[in-house]
Design a binder for these strands. Sequence first.
DNA 1: ATATTGACATTTA
DNA 2: ATAAATGCCAATA
Length: 105
Amino acid sequence: MKIDDLKEDVYRIVKKIPKGKVMTYGQIASLLRLPNYHRIVAKILSLNRSEKVPCHRVIESSGKLGGYSISGDKKEKAKKLLKDGLKFEKKTLIVDLQKYLFKRF
DNA sequence: ATATTGACATTTA
DNA sequence: ATAAATGCCAATA
């Protein structure tokens, strides 16, 4: 299973996301030199469901939160992000990527 | 083995 | 600008 191998890399990257920043699925995939694996990244995170990784800092490129399997409630994810210091409309749950996107380069 | 699905992204209309 | 269509890979049924 490649996913099992990618899992480590994904976690590694996600863990490196500084507090107050977020990354997108496609971005992570690109960092792994696998630009088309965004879906796989998402699947990995869905399978993950462990809180050892700040997976709540991974959102969609559109700025929407995406999903959250741990509690199944996106509000939980939003709360964590707010706790990280991010500020966004609680109604739309749209994150300002211009501000909070973590770019390594 | 084929078909559907997924915490999506990018392109086209 | 928004919305639909297309693409992508692996897992699951």
